[in-house]
Computed example of a mutant assay.
Amino acid sequence: MPGEFDLIRRFFHYPTSHTDLGVGDDGALLRPRPGMQLVVSTDMLVAGHHFFPQADPFLLGWKAAAVNISDMAAMAAEPRWITLALALPQADDEWVGALARGFRDCCEAYCVDWIGGDTTRGPLNLCATVFGEVPADAAVRRDGARHGDDIWISGWPGMAALGLAHLRGELQLLDGWSESCLDRLHRPIPRVALGMALRGVASAMLDVSDGLLGDLAHILERSQVGAMIEETALPLDALLAACKRTEPAMAALLGGGDDYELLFTVPREKRGQVEALGRHLELPLHRIGRILDKSGLWLQRGDGVVEAIAASGFDHFA
């Protein structure tokens, strides 16, 4: 069985492109670019809670990097450096090698230097910390939404949740859709280009990890506003095509999470900029509602009836 330092040497030591000193010392040496603020975020993935213990290690490595890189996109930052702390029940060469390849591939896809971390024996657990840069005062935070702003969501929210429900045997996806939904679950795509392009455009933003409504509630709380969601504007077509059932499709879209799509608010007068940005990036951007000057979360049904809705989402301690 390989030892800790042999594991590090064989699987976690990669060249860097914009780091003064990476793996191999007591710490990494970074040189932020002039005029930039550092953005730092940490996410943990725990076996049996965030992923199945038998998960494909390559895909798990990709996801461990991707969910952290997505946090940089959510603040309009450029991801630059990342570390990985890893607890392993045992040091299995093949498993660790596949995990490292998945993590490295995601980092390379987004030009992120893997600069270190830690390994130890313990229950299977991955904890990554990502560092990014954003021009001073250009970060998009959660507290900037204002009355009248449009609410937007990127991509295909809800597909990851349908993939998880399919894995759990809770529903059967139609032919051709299970692969797409499982790919969204296992290989999330951080919306880095979109996040950076929304500097100076979006008033508030985050990435959807715990469910659209639950995460929208974080923006509403920090901004001290409310929101109206329009049922007819919700991007349900792909979800309905995948499962042919309205109830699970709506539940996946509004409460599923694990999509890492960007949820953001934009002043109405900048609506055209967002539409042009979606065309430029070839990425669907859906305008699903608006910010209100009163507290609460509301849904306007297709028949015009308005009702209050709960901001439900994933809770790590529920």
Rank of each mutant, 00 (worst) to 15 (best):
G3M: 10
G3R: 10
L7D: 09
I8A: 10
R9I: 07
F12C: 05
P15M: 05
S17R: 15
L21A: 15
L21I: 15
G22I: 09
G24R: 09
G27W: 10
L30M: 11
R33F: 11
P34M: 14
G35S: 08
V39H: 12
S41Q: 11
S41T: 09
D43N: 14
L45P: 01
L45D: 01
V46G: 00
A47Q: 00
F52C: 03
P53D: 01
L60V: 05
W62H: 07
M72P: 08
M75K: 14
R80S: 03
T83H: 03
L84V: 03
A87N: 03
Q90V: 10
A91L: 11
D92L: 04
D93A: 14
D93C: 10
W95M: 13
G97D: 09
D105H: 09
C106P: 02
Y110P: 03
I115K: 02
G116M: 00
G116S: 06
G117H: 01
D118S: 15
T119D: 11
N125G: 10
V134S: 00
P135H: 00
P135T: 06
A136H: 02
A139I: 03
A145D: 08
H147T: 15
D149K: 01
D150Q: 02
G158W: 00
L162G: 05
L171R: 06
G176V: 05
W177T: 08
S178C: 06
L182M: 09
L182V: 01
R187K: 15
I189K: 14
I189R: 15
M196V: 13
A197Y: 06
R199G: 13
S203Q: 11
A204Q: 05
L213D: 07
L216M: 04
I219D: 02
L220I: 02
V225G: 06
I229P: 05
E230V: 12
E230K: 09
A233E: 13
D237G: 12
A238F: 12
C243W: 04
M250W: 14
A252Y: 04
L254S: 12
G255F: 09
G257M: 10
D258F: 14
D258K: 10
D259N: 12
D259Q: 10
Y260L: 11
E261L: 05
F264D: 03
T265F: 06
P267G: 07
V274R: 01
L277C: 12
R279H: 13
H280D: 14
E282H: 12
L283W: 01
L283E: 04
P284L: 05
H286K: 03
H286E: 08
I288R: 02
R290L: 14
R290F: 15
L292F: 12
L292A: 08
D293A: 12
D293E: 13
K294L: 13
L297Y: 05
L297P: 03
L297W: 09
Q300F: 01
G304A: 07
A308D: 13
G313M: 07
G313K: 09
